[in-house]
Nucleic acid binder design. Structure first.
Length: 256
DNA sequence: ATGGTTGTGTTACAA
């Protein structure tokens, strides 16, 4: 079972890219972020026509996440627990073929310091709490999405230039490390520890052409999921298309 | 070059 994650930066604009990816890469599950639309405006019919089930947690203008899956999406839940006042659409879970798939769009957190950075750290604390709950069930799960965290300087094209960015702050990295220390595995890093494997390139200043990227999209696997991990990687192709998202898909392959 | 681009949706804000 192949599970991919992709921040598409508007599903309305990126629908042709997404349908092309579904046809060519044919992932079993895709976690989408930044769909930037309400549920009613998500192009479900076009995606269902390609053989996928759809679950959406949308929001007007900003954020928004969705799950696409060839197999049924069971027990869908939306919103990250821990703050009933949080109205930003950044989290969705569903069970697919016995695997709990968690799609997430972690807050960017800039500027630092500020309310947005505080929100990011609080959101990460809630994600850690949710991971603890899921780990207690001792079942396979995958937390996949745009984490907006570069785990180390090796994940940044210009570490000095990004030293003050929310994506690289010690507090952000510490919380990502807490997820790892709970027993989760950064699957793409495990399979490619020596390489950059950037997943994001800024639209400005020719960043893509210069490979000035960041690794911020991750798939964290529970021990029971790691037992089934066969491969992991990043598909750079979509970032090179016309009118691309600034992110490209990352994925894992789990045995059946 | 105190810069650059994209998307939503109005001419600001988020990334």
């Amino acid at each position: 079972m192949r599970i991919a994650t992709w921040n598409v930066n508007s599903i309305k604009v990126r629908l042709p890219h997404v349908t092309e990816y579904l046809k060519t890469a044919a992932p079993d599950v895709v976690c989408l972020q930044e769909i930037k639309c309400i549920d009613e405006n998500f192009p479900a019919l076009e995606i269902e026509d390609l053989g996928y089930n759809v679950a959406v947690h949308g929001q007007k203008t900003y954020n928004g996440v969705a799950l696409l899956s060839k197999l049924p999406l069971d027990d869908v839940s939306t919103g990250l627990p821990g703050d009933d006042g949080d109205e930003q659409a950044r989290y969705i879970e569903a069970t697919v073929g016995g695997v709990r798939v968690c799609g997430l769009y972690l807050p960017n957190g800039n500027p630092v310091p500020g309310e947005k950075f505080d929100y990011k750290l609080g959101w990460m604390d809630r994600l850690i709490a949710r991971a603890k709950e899921l780990l207690a069930e001792e079942q396979p799960f995958v937390m996949a999405g745009d984490y907006n965290v570069c785990p180390t300087d090796g994940d940044v094209w210009d570490p000095k230039g990004f030293a003050g960015d929310a994506l690289c702050q010690p507090e952000s990295r510490n919380r990502f490390r807490q997820l790892i220390n709970l027993g989760l595995t950064d699957a793409v890093h495990l399979h490619n520890p020596q390489d950059h494997f950037y997943t994001y390139w800024d639209y400005t200043a020719g960043a893509w052409q210069k490979d000035h990227g960041l690794r911020i999209d991750h798939l964290l696997l529970s021990p029971q999921a790691v037992d089934r991990l066969e491969a992991a990687g990043v598909d750079r192709g979509p970032r090179g298309e016309e009118k691309p998202s600034d992110h490209t898909p990352a994925w894992v392959e789990l045995s059946e």
